[in-house]
């Protein structure tokens, strides 16, 4: 069965008469400068940023789920990335890619360098989208950001504190992934 490709046609509509912008036919949207948003998020705090990002992600996940339908659980990595990345691209959140390091899934978002609020926002958007689309309760942690690429590690909520601890201990993100696999092998 051929999987549908992401089609952004008519996804964003500008109603100049009304002065409204619609995204995929959903409600009016506001185009906010990124820097202003990030300051707002920074002022709002981490929890507010996460909630804001979760809401954005759920909407992304819903649209992806609507596009892929019931076959979303069998959708290939390429297809899912295509649709998820397309939605994030419509939001102006950057270009999404997925790296597989062993069994670990690392989401790579290329774009302008983000601050902490921006990273927290993207992590919350991806987490919300996965939760909405695939019904998985996943935690997205920042592994590294370099050269315009933000690498986000998707782990469970149980593993997230350990990874955060390793990261705070200046453990390289590669070592973090290795340790995750060693822990699994010894188990």
């Amino acid at each position: 069965m051929a999987e549908p490709h992401f089609d952004p046609a008519h996804a964003l509509k500008f109603d100049l008469g009304r002065g409204q912008v619609t995204l995929q036919g959903q409600g009016p949207c506001v185009l906010v400068p990124k820097a202003a948003l990030l300051e707002l998020l920074s002022a709002a705090g981490e929890e507010a940023t996460r909630n804001f990002g979760q809401q954005l992600g759920v909407e992304v996940g819903r649209r992806v789920s609507d596009r892929l339908g019931s076959d979303i659980h069998q959708a290939s990595i390429e297809t899912f990335v295509d649709h998820l990345g397309g939605e994030l691209a419509l939001l102006g959140l950057g270009s999404l890619a997925v790296e597989r390091w062993g069994m670990a899934m690392v989401i790579v978002i290329e774009g302008p360098t983000l601050n902490k609020s921006g990273i927290a926002l993207l992590s919350a958007v991806v987490s919300g989208a996965l939760q909405r689309a695939l019904s998985r309760d996943a935690t997205v942690l920042e592994l590294a950001q370099s050269e315009g690429k933000l690498r986000l590690l998707v782990v469970s909520k149980d593993t997230a504190p350990k990874v955060r601890q390793w990261l705070t201990q200046n453990v390289s993100w590669g070592e973090v992934i290795t340790r995750l696999h060693e822990q699994r092998g010894n188990a």
Binding site: Q74, I77, M103, A104, V155, A187
Partner: peptide, 15 residues
């Protein structure tokens, strides 16, 4: 993994 969901599950199993 054959699907994105499978890869996600595998990544969530990492502890």
């Amino acid at each position: 993994p054959k699907s994105f969901a499978e890869l996600l599950d595998a990544s969530l199993k990492l502890q």
